[in-house]
Simulated assay, not measured.
Amino acid sequence: MKAIFSLLMVLALVVIATVGAGAAKMQTIFAYCIPGTAFIIFVVGFVCKIISWAKSPVPFRIPTTGGQQQTLDWIPQNKWDNPSTGPQTFIRMALEVLTFRSLFRNTKVVLKHDDGKNPIVAYVSAKWLWLFAILFHYGFFIVIVRHMRLFMQPVPAPIAFLDWSDSILQILTPSIYISDLLILGGLTMLLARRFTDAKVRYISLVNDYFPLFLILGIALSGVYMRYVAKVDIMSIKDVVMGLVTFNYKVPAGVDVSFFVHLFLVSTLLVYFPFSKLMHMGGVFLSPTRNMPNDTRMVHYENVWNNPAIKPHSYEAYEDEFREPMFEAGLPLEKTPEDAA
């Protein structure tokens, strides 16, 4: 039901854009007003969320580690999984962001049986999730960068080269983009995993399905525009450049599928800062990732320790609350009779 509800919400967005920009002839609103407002909400929400995370105090070193910490000279240190210096932490963050290193090392628990048919709990490699995530994220990144050619005139050479290399296979007319296949393949596999894996399906919520269906809708509407409707790309660029330069004009000769695509993108921009998708910025501020594990080399003191607050030992705590603890049946080192 959660997946169906999420799918229905995305379909409702498609209907709203189709009716609004088609039958209701509100192309200007869907071309300029809604995307402009969505972009402002995205930027303000993203910045506010990052600032709130950056202001959160982290008084202790709490990195998540997966290897040998630096100790004695003759014990090899795992520098990338348990960094102790700033440069090592930078390498670890780069591997995490660019290659999803921790996800690559992911394992899953399975129940096997030995020769005597006795059940044995085992941990096996689970690289498929890493592969799906890599396909989706890099496909999505290439699509975003490639779309920058619509916002610039003239188009910078690196973006033009990326656009050319993305369609280098030159299959069909117009040419199929490799990034389209990557993002559709990755999204399909990630959705299939949530449907087929009982454990993942049990813990999945609406806010897990909705962004996947929304991005899938964006990708499919983009594919439809390019390969089925075959929209006039120059007319679309005129609309986009008008949005960028604040030189608004009524869109002419643009297929309604473009407004559906743009409306779904605008919905994603509004949804982004308030969803789990904010891990895109949050990964850089995660103290479990961006802190070196140097607790054996540097002594840290809690700066919020109030000197006026004295330590309260368990012995003093029990002396203060012995009677209520005894009445509640809690274990005591001294009963009220012994303390008397």
Rank of each mutant, 00 (worst) to 15 (best):
A3G: 12
I16K: 02
I16V: 15
I16M: 09
I16C: 11
A17F: 12
V19Y: 06
G22E: 09
I29K: 06
A38M: 12
I41M: 14
V44K: 10
K49I: 04
I50E: 12
P57G: 07
P57W: 01
R61I: 05
I62T: 14
P63I: 11
P63C: 11
P63R: 14
T71A: 08
D73K: 08
N78G: 04
S84W: 15
Q88S: 09
T89S: 07
I91W: 08
A94D: 05
E96M: 07
F100R: 08
S102F: 00
F104N: 01
N106E: 07
V110I: 14
G116P: 00
V121F: 07
S125M: 03
A126R: 05
K127R: 14
W130T: 02
L131R: 03
F132L: 01
I134T: 04
Y138F: 13
F141A: 12
I142C: 02
V143T: 00
R149M: 01
L150I: 01
M152I: 03
Q153H: 07
P158F: 02
D163W: 00
S175V: 02
A192I: 02
D197I: 01
A198I: 07
R201Y: 03
Y202P: 00
V206C: 01
D208R: 00
F213G: 01
G222M: 03
G222R: 00
D238F: 00
M241K: 10
Y248F: 15
G253E: 08
V254K: 06
S266W: 00
L268Q: 09
L269D: 06
V270W: 05
K276Y: 02
V283T: 11
F284A: 11
S286K: 15
R296I: 02
H299T: 15
N306M: 07
I309Y: 08
K310G: 02
P311G: 06
Y314G: 03
A316D: 13
Y317T: 12
E320W: 10
E323K: 13
P324Q: 09
G329R: 10
K334P: 06
